[in-house]
C-alpha cells in the first residue's frame, strides 16, 4: 500500500476542522460546502461571503499545491486529479451530487464534519447512508 498517507490526511483534516471552527466562531455559519454553493441560487441571500469563501477555497488549494507540490495532485503513489469516467458518466454523477446534497441538506462537510461534531443524530443518519451507498456504488460499478 504505497499510497497510504495518514499524516497528510491528519494535517489536511486539521486545516478543514480549523476552517469550520473559524467560520462558526466568527460568523456563526456552518462550513457546509453544498450549502454555501447551493444557496447561491435564487432565492439567494448573502451572496458575497459565499462567493468569497468558494473563491478562497480554490485559491487555498492552489497555494497549498505551490507550497507542498509533492502532495495530492500529481503526488507519490501515482495519484492524479483526473476526472473518472466518460463525459456522460461525469454528468450523471454531478447531477446526483447536486440533487442529493440539496434534498438531503448537506454533504461530507456539513453533515460529515460539522454535523458529527455537533452530535447531530440527523447528520449521523445522513453520513451512514451516503457512505454506505457510496461504498456499494464503488463495489457495483467497479471503476477502481
Amino acid at each position: 500500500m504505497e499510497a497510504f498517507s495518514p499524516v497528510p490526511a491528519l494535517i489536511g483534516g486539521a486545516f478543514i476542522g480549523a476552517a469550520s471552527a473559524l467560520l462558526w466562531v466568527g460568523n456563526g455559519r456552518i462550513a457546509g460546502i453544498s450549502g454555501i454553493f447551493g444557496q447561491l441560487l435564487p432565492p439567494a441571500q448573502t451572496v458575497v461571503w459565499r462567493i468569497l469563501f468558494l473563491v478562497a477555497m480554490v485559491a487555498g488549494g492552489f497555494i497549498a499545491a505551490m507550497l507542498v507540490p509533492g502532495l495530492g495532485v500529481g503526488g507519490p503513489g501515482g495519484l492524479s486529479a483526473e476526472m473518472i469516467g466518460e463525459p456522460w458518466w461525469i454528468a450523471v454523477a454531478g447531477l446526483l451530487v447536486g440533487l442529493g446534497t440539496k434534498i438531503g441538506n448537506g454533504c461530507t462537510s456539513g453533515h460529515g464534519v460539522c454535523g458529527l461534531a455537533r452530535f447531530s443524530l440527523r447528520s449521523l443518519v445522513a453520513v451512514l447512508v451516503f457512505f454506505g451507498v457510496a461504498i456499494i456504488t464503488v463495489a457495483v460499478t467497479g471503476v477502481v
Binding site: 486545516f15 478543514i16 476542522g17 469550520s20 473559524l22 468569497l52 478562497a56 487555498g60 492552489f62 497555494i63
Partner: peptide, 8 residues
Amino acid sequence: SGLLFGAG
C-alpha cells in the same frame, strides 16, 4: 476559512 478549507 475558505483558504484553510481548500488547503486542507
